[in-house]
């Protein structure tokens, strides 16, 4: 039976510091956007922020996964444009990656 309930004395400080850093990022991004005055042009450009962030999450991760990662993204794309169903797209993408690894 593992030790479930102990919190080591020095872990308290680590929990507080990690949580403070992480929450300051979560609150900070939102807070900062309320502090700056933006031109309409920049404001319009910011509507592309979510897509740009998602692209930045996808591309290196797909490349890191290798050929099956790129094929998986393609499978997700086909499923999404075909049905627009996230579950189907996940099954297609994960299925391609799984199949490729089975063949190796």
């Amino acid at each position: 039976m593992p030790d479930w309930f102990t919190v080591h004395p020095d872990t308290w400080l680590v929990i507080i510091v990690m949580s403070a850093i992480t929450y300051s990022f979560r609150a900070g991004g939102y807070w900062l956007m309320g502090r700056v005055t933006l031109s309409p042009r920049v404001e319009a450009g910011l509507s592309y922020l979510p897509g740009a962030v998602i692209t930045a999450l996808v591309v290196p991760a797909a490349l890191e996964a290798g050929i099956e990662g790129i094929a998986g993204v393609a499978a997700v794309g086909i499923a999404m444009r075909w049905r627009g169903n996230l579950m189907l797209a996940l099954v297609a993408g994960i299925g391609v990656v799984w199949l490729y690894r089975q063949m190796l």
Partner: peptide, 8 residues
């Protein structure tokens, strides 16, 4: 990665 790609 698949979730993010799907949302894109």
């Amino acid at each position: 990665t698949a979730v993010f790609a799907a949302m894109l």
